[in-house]
Protein backbone atom coordinates (compact mmCIF):
# COMPACT_ATOMS: atom_id res chain seq x y z
CA UNK A 1 0.00 0.00 0.00
CA UNK A 2 1.14 3.59 -0.40
CA UNK A 3 2.71 5.22 2.64
CA UNK A 4 -0.03 7.84 2.62
CA UNK A 5 -2.54 5.17 3.66
CA UNK A 6 -0.58 3.79 6.63
CA UNK A 7 -1.80 4.35 10.16
CA UNK A 8 -0.13 6.12 13.02
CA UNK A 9 2.37 4.18 15.17
CA UNK A 10 2.67 1.31 12.69
CA UNK A 11 6.06 -0.07 11.73
CA UNK A 12 6.49 -0.30 7.99
CA UNK A 13 9.00 -1.67 5.53
CA UNK A 14 9.52 0.18 2.27
CA UNK A 15 9.03 -2.19 -0.67
CA UNK A 16 9.33 0.14 -3.60
CA UNK A 17 9.54 3.79 -4.57
CA UNK A 18 7.65 4.70 -7.70
CA UNK A 19 9.04 7.86 -9.08
CA UNK A 20 11.78 9.63 -10.94
CA UNK A 21 15.46 9.42 -10.07
CA UNK A 22 15.27 12.78 -8.39
CA UNK A 23 12.64 11.61 -5.92
CA UNK A 24 14.39 8.31 -5.26
CA UNK A 25 17.73 9.99 -4.69
CA UNK A 26 16.33 12.59 -2.29
CA UNK A 27 14.49 9.95 -0.30
CA UNK A 28 17.36 7.53 -0.09
CA UNK A 29 19.72 10.26 1.11
CA UNK A 30 17.39 10.63 4.08
CA UNK A 31 17.48 6.90 4.73
CA UNK A 32 14.27 6.02 2.89
CA UNK A 33 15.03 3.28 0.35
CA UNK A 34 13.55 -0.11 -0.48
CA UNK A 35 14.23 -2.32 2.50
CA UNK A 36 14.43 0.33 5.20
CA UNK A 37 12.13 0.09 8.18
CA UNK A 38 10.20 3.16 9.24
CA UNK A 39 7.57 4.12 11.76
CA UNK A 40 4.57 6.31 11.05
CA UNK A 41 4.48 9.13 13.58
CA UNK A 42 1.76 11.46 12.33
CA UNK A 43 -0.73 10.94 9.55
CA UNK A 44 -3.71 13.22 9.65
CA UNK A 45 -4.91 12.21 6.18
CA UNK A 46 -4.65 15.59 4.57
CA UNK A 47 -1.47 17.63 4.41
CA UNK A 48 2.00 16.18 4.95
CA UNK A 49 2.81 13.24 7.23
CA UNK A 50 5.71 12.47 9.54
CA UNK A 51 7.68 9.23 9.68
CA UNK A 52 10.58 8.14 11.83
CA UNK A 53 13.64 6.46 10.39
CA UNK A 54 16.81 5.77 12.40
CA UNK A 55 15.84 8.16 15.18
CA UNK A 56 15.17 11.04 12.85
CA UNK A 57 11.81 12.42 11.93
CA UNK A 58 11.05 13.23 8.33
CA UNK A 59 8.09 15.26 7.08
CA UNK A 60 6.88 14.07 3.69
CA UNK A 61 4.38 15.82 1.43
CA UNK A 62 1.26 13.80 0.69
CA UNK A 63 2.00 13.64 -3.03
CA UNK A 64 5.41 12.13 -2.44
CA UNK A 65 4.06 9.74 0.19
CA UNK A 66 1.78 8.26 -2.43
CA UNK A 67 4.84 7.19 -4.40
CA UNK A 68 6.36 5.24 -1.50
CA UNK A 69 5.03 1.71 -1.25
CA UNK A 70 5.20 -0.05 2.11
CA UNK A 71 4.24 -3.23 3.91
CA UNK A 72 3.11 -3.31 7.48
CA UNK A 73 5.33 -5.40 9.76
Amino acid sequence: MPLSMANKDKFLKITNIVGGRNVKQRLSALGLYPGSVIKMVTNDFGGPLIVEVNNSKIAIGRGMAQKILVNEI
Binding site: R26, P48, K57
Partner: peptide
Amino acid sequence: SPLLLELP
Protein backbone atom coordinates in the same frame (compact mmCIF):
# COMPACT_ATOMS: atom_id res chain seq x y z
CA SER B 1 9.28 20.74 -5.06
CA PRO B 2 7.14 18.62 -2.75
CA LEU B 3 7.80 18.86 0.95
CA LEU B 4 10.53 16.56 2.21
CA LEU B 5 12.40 17.69 5.25
CA GLU B 6 13.87 16.54 8.48
CA LEU B 7 12.34 17.60 11.77
CA PRO B 8 15.44 17.75 13.94
